[in-house]
Lab assay of single mutants.
Amino acid sequence: HNLTITQGKLFFHYNPKLCLSEIHKMEEVSGTKGRQERNDIALKTNGDQASCENELLKFSYIRTSFDKILLRWEPYWPPDFRDLLGFMLFYKEAPYQNVTEFDGQDACGSNSWTVVDIDPPLRSNDPKSQNHPGWLMRGLKPWTQYAIFVKTLVTFSDERRTYGAKSDIIYVQTDATNPSVPLDPISVSNSSSQIILKWKPPSDPNGNITHYLVFWERQAEDSELFELDYCLKGLKLPSRTWSPPFESEDSQKHNQSEYEDSAGECCSCPKTDSQILKELEESSFRKTFEDYLHNVVFVPRKTSSGTGAEDPRPSRKRRSLGDVGNVTVAVPTVAAFPNTSSTSVPTSPEEHRPFEKVVNKESLVISGLRHFTGYRIELQACNQDTPEERCSVAAYVSARTMPEAKADDIVGPVTHEIFENNVVHLMWQEPKEPNGLIVLYEVSYRRYGDEELHLCVSRKHFALERGCRLRGLSPGNYSVRIRATSLAGNGSWTEPTYFYVTDYLDVPSNIA
């Protein structure tokens, strides 16, 4: 807008934040220059609390790290170098490059900038070799853009010569660093050979998330399962459950009422301010606690030095998902009996873990797994792929695949051998790939016309006998059925096997 004052003059007093240069501009645009008398524009009460600059400061050096910015700028000295009290560095987070010096300023003089007072450097006698002032900004957020400017702080001049310097606002972004852990990993099994893994992005990506790394490792069953005799009275049979499938998407929606109208769909109840505040506090606490764990609990591995020492970490090797089922080394339970199943799973520490690289999504279907087997899954978020990966501390989750139908069934015939004193040795093959492992066998036998009897055969007993022995049988026709019990439950009964026990007292003698 054009402003013209045809008559009258300007009068400025007691404006401590208004620089004289701005008042002189007002004289020019209003056409009143030359009308004012000496005392109409006070030299001592206008701009006496402001830094009124008329020179431009330029930054000469900028260096960044993930949490620091090192700045240096060209030296500046007023005509009387004693008038320079120091520099004021202003900075704040700036997602967009549209910041002005006066953003967030209120009537009390406060604003949204963080201000650092910096002492002037030592003055050199040689004007050509003056030290460049600077400042190291610490405690910054990774991968965050900051708006920065600097200006001088000078003393009051009796001659009211307006001098000083100020830089333009520059924008500097800190470097990326390792992201925080992925949030809320959930693993479920939808079949006997697959596990579905879902997660949420890290709360602090500290860069642009480029991919996720998912490692999985087959877990050995508890050692007590191999040692305890679950045929003993009072000892509860062990059981394991597989990871249940995901709930429906509708039930997972946030901010939804727990109660549904019987007449149909209901609208979600909005969260109160107290609920939102509580969630923010919980989120802040979780982030602080995660940072504490990362800094205190997890110790970084030592990389190899120039002395030739090897990095103890196993090298990563990509495998196809079809090879995942046989990740671990199978060892027989008892070496003397080769027909026992290889369900003991000690994992070799030198073995390469299978892994998958996930790009542009937060889910993965891990296939080719062994049925009813526990897996430990390790999830890392990465925001750099080359020249070397920059990934987060791992988040861990466990899951067990679903049982395989008929995996616990005894394959092959049940054979028998009759000894003296009416002892019958029953023999059968253990299931080759049971659900988890076989903890015991149930032997059901009966003599024709009598009630059915049951015998429990422990895992250890089966390994020693290759089956079991029935003792003290009365003469007669017998039928026997056997079924295995694994961590997933009972298998199917075998087809009945028949044998006849004679009275050993009636056996004919070869003595003449």
Rank of each mutant, 00 (worst) to 15 (best):
A336W: 05
L487P: 07
P349Y: 04
H461V: 11
L369K: 00
R316V: 12
S486T: 10
H416C: 10
R400M: 06
E389Y: 11
L280F: 13
S257T: 07
Q380G: 15
V443Y: 01
L470V: 13
E495S: 14
L277S: 05
S363W: 03
C382R: 00
Y441I: 01
W216N: 09
G491A: 09
D261S: 10
T386R: 08
K432R: 07
D506E: 04
E281P: 01
D229V: 03
C456P: 02
T497F: 03
L487G: 03
E356F: 12
I410T: 03
C468L: 08
H461K: 11
L470Q: 01
K432W: 06
N383C: 13
E279P: 03
Y375D: 00
A309M: 15
V331W: 04
E224R: 09
L321N: 05
E417M: 09
N339I: 07
E362D: 06
S239W: 14
N255D: 09
E247I: 03
P244G: 13
I377W: 05
P475C: 08
R483L: 04
T328V: 14
C468M: 14
R370A: 15
E465C: 10
L369M: 09
V296W: 15
C456N: 00
S486N: 02
F215G: 11
S243R: 12
R400K: 07
L369Q: 04
E290K: 01
K361N: 03
D385H: 15
A512V: 07
H371Y: 12
P238T: 05
D311C: 03
V297N: 02
G374Q: 08
Q275M: 10
S284N: 14
R316F: 13
N383H: 05
S344Q: 14
P270D: 03
F285S: 03
E389R: 09
P332M: 12
E433R: 15
H454D: 14
D311G: 06
I482Q: 01
N255R: 03
G436E: 15
T307V: 07
N435Q: 02
V501P: 02
V501M: 14
T307Y: 15
E495F: 07
V443R: 01
K460V: 15
V297R: 01
R466P: 06
K357V: 15
S284A: 15
I438M: 13
S363H: 04
R446W: 03
L487V: 07
Q384M: 08
L487S: 10
N339Q: 11
Q380A: 07
P475M: 08
E290Q: 03
E362M: 09
E433C: 15
V365K: 02
S304T: 10
P205W: 06
